[in-house]
């Protein structure tokens, strides 16, 4: 028994020692990347600043690439001065085209002296959105050049919506897991405009919603969406909206956040 205790004490000592070794190395927590907030009205310079965040964070570019390293034995192309070099790398490609290709089809053109194998940036695991890639390109342009790309620039590539959201997540949970939509987005995504007018007072299949906020409270709007037949607007047939929404899968797909955004949006429509 005494031997056993001694051995156990020894085991604790050794484990403590290794725990101590574990404390002596740099302690860093890595958080999952957060999507950058990109506004459509950002200038190329502002976009470049946002792009720098992405390059160091979500894009994980700096895990491989250096910026401004003059080391002789680089394993990956250095990005210092890429803004100037991009226009000259491939005959007939300007800098934006070249950078876009490097991100969307990285193994199409390999810089001399390096091996291929860079992951496709708009696919998981990195999975940057098209807008984020534009920000990255703006930043890369700023390294040695002047950024010109804005969110309005057409790169000639688009990412299918499926690929950016985690596909398996969608498949496994059966619920929409794309980025949460805002009110107008929900209104558009679920095809509300097919029946309802939101900008004018003209009636469609359903009543106009341009003045919803001035005639209904938020709870009433909620009820009108979740249970359309509870109160049917005068002059319209009952059951149509409920049946349409059920058939289109609206009730399965819509998330709480989206529903809230939709109600808020409708409540803001005061008419006039």
């Amino acid at each position: 028994m005494k031997t056993g205790l001694k051995i156990f004490a020894f085991a604790i000592l050794v484990s403590l020692f290794y725990s101590y070794v574990g404390q002596t190395v740099p302690q860093k927590i890595t958080y999952p990347p957060e999507s950058a907030e990109l506004g459509a009205d950002m200038s190329a310079t502002e976009l470049a600043a946002a792009g720098e965040e992405i390059v160091g964070g979500k894009g994980t570019c700096l895990g491989c690439h250096t910026i401004g390293s003059h080391s002789e034995s680089l394993r990956f192309p250095d990005l210092g001065g890429i803004g100037a070099a991009a226009a000259t790398r491939v005959e007939g490609q300007d800098d934006v085209t070249y950078l876009a290709e490097s991100l969307y089809e990285p193994n199409k053109f390999i810089v001399e002296g390096f091996l291929g194998g860079m992951p496709v940036i708009n696919k998981p695991p990195i999975g940057l959105s098209d807008d984020e890639i534009k920000a990255v390109i703006a930043y890369l342009q700023s390294l040695g050049g002047t950024p010109t790309v804005t969110l309005a620039t057409d790169l000639g590539y688009t990412t299918a919506e499926q690929a950016t959201a985690s596909p398996a997540q969608a498949a496994a949970s059966g619920a929409s897991t794309g980025p949460a939509l805002d009110g107008p987005g929900v209104f558009a995504a679920y095809g509300c405009a097919a029946c309802h007018n939101i900008l004018t007072a003209d009636r469609g299949v359903g009543p106009s919603l341009h003045d919803t906020g001035s005639r209904m409270t938020k709870p009433e709007i909620y009820e009108a969406i979740v249970d359309p037949d509870a109160i049917v607007a005068e002059g319209y047939p009952a059951g149509v909206m409920g049946a349409t929404l059920s058939a289109s899968g609206f009730y399965q797909k819509v998330s709480t956040e989206e529903l809230k955004a939709l109600v808020d949006y409708l409540a803001d429509q005061k008419g006039g």
């Binding site: 910026i67 401004g68 210092g80 001065g81 803004g83 100037a84 040695g144 050049g145 002047t146």
Partner: peptide, 21 residues
């Protein structure tokens, strides 16, 4: 910190453009 960063291709100096290359 990069001590000697790559320079931009051009800068504007007192209203005119200077091509650093």
């Amino acid at each position: 910190r990069t001590i000697h960063p790559p320079p931009p291709a051009t800068i504007s100096f007192k209203g005119k453009t200077v091509d650093l290359g």
